[in-house]
């Protein structure tokens, strides 16, 4: 599974949405993405990519696009 698919899987499972509905514009506070889901999303991303995100990155991860940018800092390319 490629990195994009892995990230979509993490978003899909933690926010309980269909993978095909995930776009770069998907952002915090939209749909199911509330503060509770955010922490589940972070745990899911960390598990999927076997990393531990810095606290600032957890807070800054406010959209799907932003998630890709942040993961770039952890040598995860899209």
């Amino acid at each position: 599974m490629g990195n994009l698919e892995k990230l979509k899987k993490a978003f899909s499972e933690s926010l309980e949405i269909e993978p095909e509905t995930i776009t770069d514009e998907l952002s915090y506070s939209s749909g199911n993405w509330d503060s509770i889901a955010h922490l589940a999303l972070i745990a899911s991303i960390e598990t999927e990519f076997d990393i531990m995100l810095a606290s600032d990155d957890v807070i800054d991860m406010s959209s799907f696009q932003k998630a890709k940018e942040i993961l770039g800092k952890y040598d995860i390319k899209f």
Partner: peptide, 10 residues
């Protein structure tokens, strides 16, 4: 607590 909870929540 915050860092630990993140690891534990997985």
């Amino acid at each position: 607590l915050q860092f630990a909870a993140r690891l534990m929540s997985r």
